[in-house]
Design a protein around this nucleic acid. Structure first.
Lengths: 249, 249
DNA sequence: CGTCCCGTTGATCCCTATCAAATGTAGTGG
DNA sequence: CCACTACATTTGATAGGGATCAACGGGACG
């Protein structure tokens, strides 16, 4: 059975880096593509982990729900990343829920295939380990930030990461590529939508950002970097001379 | 070349589970054992990742240091666990520092061996992936807690985890197996030693724990569990008054 | 054009970090 | 064995960052 998924779609994904073409073709022959609308859920916390996925297009969020019903965004998935690999870690169920924040396209494989991929191709195993390792790093970074930084720093960092991974240059500045609410930013930074709103308003007044409904555009990246690093913002200095070097989400 | 490390030492470690004996012997022949005194550092954040390790005996802490010099404990290493596998994630340097909190014994391998292990034995690769996956889970859980829970809950959970992984039954209750300071508990829970001290004092007054210098003994595990889940406790501090009533609004 | 959502803003409160000292405890060397 | 020192812990007082409570304004979409 042959699909019409072009090999080029997965060839450049980190997970399949340096995997021989013939193996890629096998991989693709089993893949099932899925289209998701904004708000559609890919899987729910606690569900049986029957598939694992790669995001081809769009944006997803991975949420953990607390006993009290609060939601914490554990991760943002950007195109090219694997997600839902619970089975790879020998967990029977998904530890979090995954929801599309905009129209998205994913590839899905039955979890059982994971072991085949692993045993069939050593490069694949190493790639997977690296991907998970990177996420562990990111998680540790976030723990450090939650433990030691103030809300304003964390929100600034969050915005910086978003424009880093999903920024788009516009006439007004660098815009976040996809719709995002104050509530979602709050879930990413461990605060409330009220506080995020106040911060964005203050930044807007100072000319650092332009805000809109589900929209954030950064005008002065280096001022934001300064905030992220906890440095006080002195005067209304102009700005456009720094590189964005922020760790991903 | 033969070492005097008995095969049984590593045979039951998660990392080497289901790895054939002949491979184990190879592994052991390369391993270098090291003894550490309390306070000795195994590696420092930023250092070249020249080895990876398994803890055989004792306790280590893994710390990240912030730009301002504050320390955050990202992980506690207990006997049987791997650590320092930066190279496995293709990072050239260690992302954190690792320090012994008491006398400990570790096995060390040159980082270059990692790839040999990975390619030589698929089971090993799968084990490693699972181990890192488990840690990712734990990190996510911690992020959730830091984001949504109050300090008392977090500290309660922290103590519970410690007695879970390193608890020792004594006449007085369940004691944490190794010396631990208020400062260290604070670094694990994202708070200050002052707040930890106040909490432990309050718990002591209510008979939940016995405290001492670098020592915590839990007397009423289930009350602590209740605290960890955010339920208020009403019981008066006397010896064995069981709880019978709570009705928060 | 009405109805959700999303966002903004004010007022208030309280948890917890901070600042500041005093007390206790292990370890060491004379 | 004791004095000395370094480190751990406790506790009080104070202040402030954000959460929480409460309304209202505004854009999008059916």
């Amino acid at each position: 059975m042959s699909t019409n998924i072009p090999r080029s779609l997965v060839k450049n994904l980190d997970l399949f880096r340096a995997v021989p073409d013939k193996d890629l073709d096998t991989v693709l022959s089993i893949a099932r593509p899925m289209r998701l609308n904004a708000g559609d859920s890919v899987f729910q916390q606690g569900q049986n982990a029957e598939h694992f996925f790669v995001l081809l297009h769009g944006h997803l969020k991975v949420l953990q729900t607390t006993a009290e019903g609060e939601q914490v965004m554990v991760r943002y998935v950007i195109p090219g990343e694997v997600f839902g690999i619970a089975k790879a870690m020998r967990r029977p169920t998904y530890p979090a829920s995954c929801v599309a924040v905009e129209e998205s396209i994913v590839l899905a494989w039955p979890s059982a295939e994971w072991d085949r991929f692993m045993t069939g191709n050593l490069q694949f195993a190493a790639n997977a380990l690296q991907a998970v390792g990177q996420r562990l790093q990111d998680a540790h970074t976030r723990i450090k930030e939650l433990s030691t930084e103030e809300v304003e720093q964390r929100v600034a960092r969050c915005i910086l990461r978003l424009i880093d991974s999903s920024g788009e240059k516009t006439d007004d500045g660098i815009a976040i590529n996809f719709p995002i609410t104050r509530q979602e930013i709050a879930e990413m930074t461990g605060t409330t939508l009220h506080t995020v709103s106040r911060l964005l308003s203050a930044w807007k007044d100072r000319g650092l950002v332009i805000t809109g409904r589900k929209r954030v555009v950064v005008r002065k990246v280096d001022d934001l970097i300064r905030l992220a690093e906890g440095e006080p913002i002195e005067s209304a200095g102009n700005s456009s001379t720094r590189k964005s070097s922020v760790q991903p989400l």
